[in-house]
Design a protein around this nucleic acid. Structure first.
Length: 478
RNA sequence: CGGGGUGUAGCGCAGUUGGCCAGCGCACCGCGUUUGGGACGCGGGGGUCGGCGGUUCAAGUCCGCCCACCCCGACCA
């Protein structure tokens, strides 16, 4: 039978790589750094999309689609933007067998081409705000790639909004960060910390970048979603102007915000265990798997009849259910397989259950015997709903407790350098680039965010000892 | 792009100082027996040994070049 997964403690990154492949979330494509998202992985992504899209619609956004190709000159219109992205651009120089008069960039993000269109569409304050989101793919020519975490091409959504006032654009930026945090916590059971990026970590072309940061089980940080206040930078670059109520020509204020398939990596590394994936119930492609157990034909037909009846009952109750009727595989083998693939709830139905009107329930967040219980077939959908809520709650609690146990408040820089190798440091920082750079140089840890939730007061910079009025999370990051 | 490593069946590997027909485990296909935590028997299919060139009577094995991938650094959602 398939060998065991490497354990997280012996080799976390190998655990991750093998898990992605073996759970059939994704596979390596024939192009270096590119991945194929397999049906199971895509189903997970579709559930993420639905959860987010619903929230985008609720907050007044509409979807649209912009081109994959962007004229090179567009990128060059915003100075910081082009400086940030030019090293990682894929550029198309030929089309239809002829050299192009102007190279086309495969979009690394769409601020520029959307800015160009907004300039055409926006004339008056009556046209504002523009609240558009796009689901799509982008390409960034990364040097070191990992499935889901960093690939040359990835799937995401990017929201792009334009507003009449700075205030309104900042509010939008923060509102969408809240949407991400709400999704992460309440749908993915991934606890996140909301905050601001430092100058050196912010998006190329942004005035302010905000982020949700999550801690993986190896204690590294993963930026799981970002929302940017772009000020008038792109408005000026693309002449996005409107006439206000006083007939004055003004530049709009824009925002952009994105969450990518990287989030799948966050789910894997937040909840996964040594048996495999542990998917949060609300996003799991299969929420309940039914494994029938029998020895002979008589048992087989009785068990399958019950299994099918319960399958339809659960399906009718709106649960994503799978009945695993494969004849060639033993139940034990199926248990291992569905555990590897992270299905939150497993239902075992055997002759004894048929007899007594019960089923055996196994919850994925507690592997082995410990997670098993026998429950009545009566009211099974409700029982399972309650169980899934409990699983969600316990995943979130466990991940939060893990994170809290690995956030440190080092007393001095020596201790800082030590703790940042086994967790995050939450430390005072004076705000100077040099101190931030020294940390990166000495420890490979970077500033993750300046959390909105601050202890208040002031302290001394962990590096230079100068007065500091903000505390910052520092961590090694993906 | 620098440092290190690996390329033999889908996956994991073995293959002696070069020697006849390139092997093993798992997976896969067929038949039968099995099935409450990774079943078993029998029978099968599957290979330009990463690529190109060289040395040799003879290359998976020796030499050169190239390619791909993995790990470590510089860039990053």
């Amino acid at each position: 039978m398939p060998e065991k997964l490497p354990s997280r403690s012996e080799d976390f990154s190998e655990w991750y790589n093998q898990l992605v492949l073996r759970a059939e979330l994704a596979d390596y494509a024939p192009v270096r750094g590119c991945m194929v998202v397999r049906p199971y992985g895509w189903a997970l992504w579709e559930n993420i999309q639905q959860a987010l899209d619903r929230r985008f619609k609720e907050t007044g956004h509409v979807n649209a689609a912009f081109p994959l190709f962007i004229p090179m000159s567009f990128l060059e219109k915003e100075k910081e933007h082009v400086e940030g992205f030019s090293p990682e651009l894929a550029v198309v120089t030929h089309g239809g067998g002829e050299p192009l008069s102007e190279p086309l960039v495969v979009r690394p993000t769409s601020e520029t081409i959307i800015g160009y269109m907004y300039a055409k569409w926006i004339q008056s304050y009556r046209d504002l705000p523009v609240l558009i989101n796009q689901w799509g793919n982008v390409v960034r020519w990364e040097l070191r790639t990992r499935l889901f975490l960093r690939t040359l091409e990835f799937y995401w959504q990017e929201g792009h909004t334009a507003h009449a006032t700075e205030q309104e654009a900042i509010e939008e930026t923060l509102r969408m960060l809240d949407v991400y945090a709400d999704f992460a916590i309440n749908d993915a059971a991934v606890p996140v910390i909301k905050g601001k990026k430092t100058e050196s970590e912010k998006f190329a072309g942004a005035v302010m970048s905000t982020t949700i940061e999550a801690m993986m089980q190896d204690t590294r940080a993963l930026q799981s979603g970002t929302s940017h206040f772009l000020g008038q930078n792109f408005a000026r670059a693309f002449e996005i102007r409107f006439l206000d109520q006083n007939n004055q020509l003004q530049y709009v204020w824009t925002t952009s915000w994105g969450l990518s398939t990287r989030f799948i990596g966050a789910i894997i590394m937040t909840h996964g265990d040594d048996q495999g994936l542990v998917l949060p119930p609300k996003l799991a492609p299969i929420q309940v798997v039914i494994v029938p157990i029998y020895k002979n034909d008589a048992e087989r037909s009785a068990v399958l009849e019950t299994a099918q009846r319960l399958f339809h009952e659960l399906q009718a109750a709106g649960l994503r259910v799978k009945l695993d009727g494969r004849e060639e595989m033993t139940p034990g083998n199926k248990f291992y397989e569905w555990e590897l693939r992270g299905v939150p709830v497993r239902l075992e139905i055997g002759p004894k259950d048929v007899q007594s009107g019960s089923v055996t329930l196994a919850r994925r967040d507690r592997p082995g015997r410990e997670g098993k219980s026998t429950v009545s077939q009566q009211g099974l959908p409700e029982t399972i709903r309650a169980l899934m809520n409990d699983i969600h709650r316990s995943l979130l609690e466990r991940a939060t407790a893990f994170r809290e146990a690995h956030i440190f408040d080092p007393k001095d820089y020596a201790e800082f350098q030590e703790v940042v190798q086994r967790g995050w440091a939450f430390s005072w920082w004076c705000g100077r680039k040099e101190c931030e750079a020294k940390i990166k140089e000495d420890t490979k840890a970077t500033s993750r965010c300046i959390p909105f939730e601050q202890p208040g007061g002031s302290g001394r910079c962990i590096v230079c000892g100068e007065k500091a009025d903000q505390k910052v999370y520092f961590a090694r990051a993906y």
